[in-house]
Simulated assay, not measured.
Amino acid sequence: MNAPAIDQTKLDAFVTRAVGDLSSAYGGVLVSLGSKLGLYKAMSGAGPIGAAELATRTGCAERYVREWLNAQAAGDYVGYHTDSDTYELSPEQALVLADEESPLFIPHAWQVPASMWFDEERTLEAFRTGKGVAWGDHDGRLQCGVAAFYRNGYRASLVPEWLPALEGVVEQLEAGTIVADVGCGHGHSTVLMAQAFPRSRFHGFDGHAASIDAARHNAAAAGVAERASFEVARAVDYPDGQYGLICFFDCLHDMGDPVAAARYAARVLAPGGTVMLVEPFAQDRVEHNLSPVSRMYYAASTTICCAHAISEGGELVLGAQAGEARLAEVFRKAGVSHFRRAAETPFNLILEACR
């Protein structure tokens, strides 16, 4: 059989794209280094700065700093001034790279692919055997990276935008109700709600003991430990509190039996209560999810989300690009009649379910 003809233009374009992706992966390592070493922070608001001065400000070796700066300039992550041999971080770049309170701050996210590489042997075995990989069996950078990355997005949107999009929920929270945050991780979402609604009581549940320890520490540091408690529990056996609000933040798709989790939530929900489901943004069909954001979600889903669901038995492995229709079907099977999209962002669907 004759080999297929090669379209040189298509080949060149694809090689360019593949090399660009490889360059981005290399650059991600330097983004993480720059954040941890304080290089971006030292550049923020400083105007043009030379490599030697930046090295002095950060206590780093000048030769390493210069090479790092050149890589940043080559990737357009900082500007380079030829005449003065200086580098500059723009205000826009600072929001993404230096401001740890910004909802756009991205350096922590690079811990996730770092953990994916570290866990490559586990993933290879999972592919070959069909077995799962539990959340807690991954390299610790996964849990820390996910928690830190989502924290700022939740801080920007959860209280001012997402909760008000739910019918009557803010009024209940202001009056005082009981809230379950299922799959709470490090508890950032729980803490944010506890800070905003002091008359309500919040209970975070997660099957990963180390994350629960971190959540308790975060609640204490935020001064809300008296109204935000945390306990190791699965999505089908946390205490029945007859909750006014049950939240699943970016976690239902990770569960081995999401229908059972939704059914249990419906059982422990108080009359008139609401389930808030926050999931990665996705359309319902693969051909509508062919984007850079979806590529990122599919990649994480391959090694993390699907792997954990399979480790829990894999009754229904949704993956991180489940889409609204499949999620609605989960709650329909759980006996929940009301399900709607309350809000959306480029990264998340915010869905409401009620009995």
Rank of each mutant, 00 (worst) to 15 (best):
A5R: 14
D7E: 14
Q8V: 11
R17Y: 15
G20H: 06
D21V: 03
Y26S: 05
Y40F: 15
G47D: 01
T56Q: 14
E62F: 02
V65F: 05
G75S: 09
D76Y: 05
Q93C: 01
A98C: 02
I106Y: 10
P107K: 04
V112I: 15
F118G: 00
A126T: 03
T129S: 15
H138D: 04
Q143Y: 00
C144P: 00
G153F: 03
P160D: 08
E161C: 06
L166D: 13
G168I: 08
G168A: 07
G168L: 08
T177S: 14
T177E: 10
C184Y: 11
H186E: 11
H186I: 00
S189W: 02
T190M: 07
F197Q: 12
S200Q: 12
F202N: 06
H203V: 08
G204A: 10
S211P: 01
A214P: 00
H217R: 13
A221Y: 00
G223L: 11
V224Q: 07
F230P: 00
D240R: 10
L245R: 05
L245S: 07
I246N: 03
D250K: 07
C251F: 00
R267Y: 04
P271Q: 08
E279H: 07
P280W: 15
Q283G: 04
Q283D: 12
E287G: 02
E287C: 09
H288T: 09
T302K: 03
T303S: 11
I304G: 02
C305E: 04
G319M: 13
A320D: 06
E324G: 08
L327D: 05
V330F: 07
F339P: 12
A342S: 15
I350R: 11
A353G: 01
